[in-house]
């Protein structure tokens, strides 16, 4: 499925180092820079931080989906990061977040973001998949769990 193309082994980190929301977000933007699709790192980080200020993207069950819109990308790009110890992301359920899926999409297009969220949420909604993600030992394994 084309929508899963944004997620590649290069944009997956199994061991995020940051201990704060800001540090995690910066680390994940750097993962996206590694994908080669971002023209302006600082513009992307700013978009993601501003979005986070409006309402935390920390959801439930350890999942956070930070995202932003900027014309620094031509198409939707995505990264996935794991921080087993968890970080306080101000999540809706009050629990620490340990699985982060970041998407950055162009200002002008709205459809792909909702589609990507739906695709990625199906496996993430499954507790056994979340447990396997947290135990994964390679980016390939993560991709396989999410994309099959």
């Amino acid at each position: 499925m084309n929508l899963k193309k944004p997620l590649t082994v290069e944009t997956i980190s199994l061991d995020l180092q940051g201990d704060s929301k800001e540090a995690i977000l910066a680390e994940m933007v750097d993962l996206l820079v590694a994908s080669g699709h971002i023209r302006d790192r600082d513009a992307v980080l700013k978009a993601v931080l501003e979005r986070e200020k409006r309402m935390s993207t920390g959801m439930q069950n350890g999942i956070a989906i930070p995202h932003g819109k900027t014309d620094s990308v031509d198409c939707l790009v995505a990264a996935l990061g794991i921080k087993r110890a968890g970080v306080d992301f101000g999540a809706l359920d009050g629990q620490p977040s340990n699985i982060f899926v970041m998407t950055v999409s162009p200002d002008s297009r709205t459809g792909p973001h909702i589609q990507f969220l739906a695709e990625i949420s199906r496996p993430l909604n499954d507790a056994s998949v979340r447990a396997k993600l947290l135990a994964a030992t390679s980016p390939d394994e993560v991709l396989h769990l999410l994309i099959g």
């Binding site: 439930q60 459809g111 739906a118 949420s121 993430l124 909604n125």
Partner: peptide, 13 residues
């Protein structure tokens, strides 16, 4: 009551 559940619906405009 599940965010990830709601997101799977792909509730587009």
């Amino acid at each position: 009551k599940s965010i990830m559940g709601l997101l799977t619906l792909e509730g587009n405009h």
